[in-house]
């Protein structure tokens, strides 16, 4: 029982971090109708911004975290939109389409190789944000770090949902996502709303980075697996729903740990892919997603 609880908690904790990255996929999809294949790298890079702050600029950890967040929001949020997404969408009938998706892949490669070139190919130590202790919960020994990771990710998702549903800006962002033309007619500054979405995506990726890097260690190649798992989580949960991405992330996190513990460690990496195939066959819109009509 104790083992089950610990594995469940670890799975939920890692899954909630996957969910943060997966939500980024759905946000960018809704705001710009594109898939950001650099999302994994968006989670990898902020950790290195923090390391630059810590090791080269001599900042204390809290300041370095703020520095990392600020740089990420500017570079991975605002600049990503201004320099890559906007120019490619201009004059394009289908909102950028395939060329834009390929451009995000290229951006992913550029980020990965740049980190490798400028910071090094080896894994780097990354400071823990939380105590490395364990505590007793209903007789099971569980790690404080896992609990805090889960709590923080879930609170952020709840706060984000509330922001989108309960505030004026949030509702304007939703209106922009659903129908930009009508939203504009109704007086919504759609450009600004799209920019907000990109900034939120960058902030979520940064948070995921801060939470997962103490476990994964800072390495240039971290984005490869993270990006893939978050993408699968978003599809499994439902690409157009925040709650879908959350469910998908948690599901994959828990299933991954459960498989490795109780079934087979060798094939644990295959599990998300099997789940993906299954969901695409049975429920293409994702577990919690809604069908999107497309005319050909």
């Amino acid at each position: 029982m104790s083992q089950f609880l610990q594995v469940l908690l670890s799975g939920l904790a890692t899954g909630s971090i996957y969910a943060l990255a997966a939500i980024g996929f759905t946000l960018v999809w809704q705001a710009a109708q594109t898939v950001n294949f650099a999302q994994g790298e968006f989670v990898m890079v902020p950790a290195f911004f923090v390391l630059v702050g810590l090791n080269f600029l001599g900042m204390p950890l809290p300041i370095a975290l703020a520095f990392g967040l600020a740089l990420s929001v500017i570079i991975l949020g605002a600049m990503f939109k201004k320099v890559i997404v906007e120019p490619m969408q201009k004059g394009s009938k289908d909102g950028g389409g395939l060329p834009l998706i390929i451009a995000t892949m290229a951006l992913g490669l550029l980020l990965k190789e740049s980190v490798k070139e400028f910071y090094g190919a080896e894994a780097q130590p990354y400071p823990n944000m939380f105590p490395q202790d364990s505590m007793n919960v209903f007789g099971a020994v569980v790690s404080v770090q896992d609990l805090l990771n889960l709590l923080i990710s879930l609170s952020v998702v709840v706060a984000l949902t509330m922001f989108l549903n309960r505030t004026r800006t949030g509702r304007c962002m939703q209106a922009t996502a659903q129908n930009p033309q009508v939203a504009e007619i109704l007086g919504v500054n759609t450009k600004r709303m799209v920019l907000y979405t990109f900034l939120i995506n960058a902030a979520l990726a940064t948070l995921a980075s801060f939470l997962i890097t103490p476990v994964y260690l800072a390495k240039f190649s971290n984005g490869e697996t993270l990006g893939l798992i978050a993408f699968i989580a978003a599809i499994v949960g439902g690409f157009n729903q925040i709650r879908g991405a959350l469910a998908g992330g948690l599901l994959i996190g828990v299933l991954d740990n459960m498989t490795a513990t109780y079934l087979t460690a060798e094939y644990r990496a295959a599990l998300p892919l099997i789940l993906l195939i299954f969901v695409i066959l049975v429920r293409p819109q994702g577990l919690l997603g809604t069908a999107e009509g497309r005319s050909v």
Binding site: S10, N222, A260, T261, A265
Partner: peptide, 9 residues
């Protein structure tokens, strides 16, 4: 990257 399951075993 994730050794949670291994350690719990």
């Amino acid at each position: 990257a994730d050794y949670a399951a291994d350690v719990s075993k």
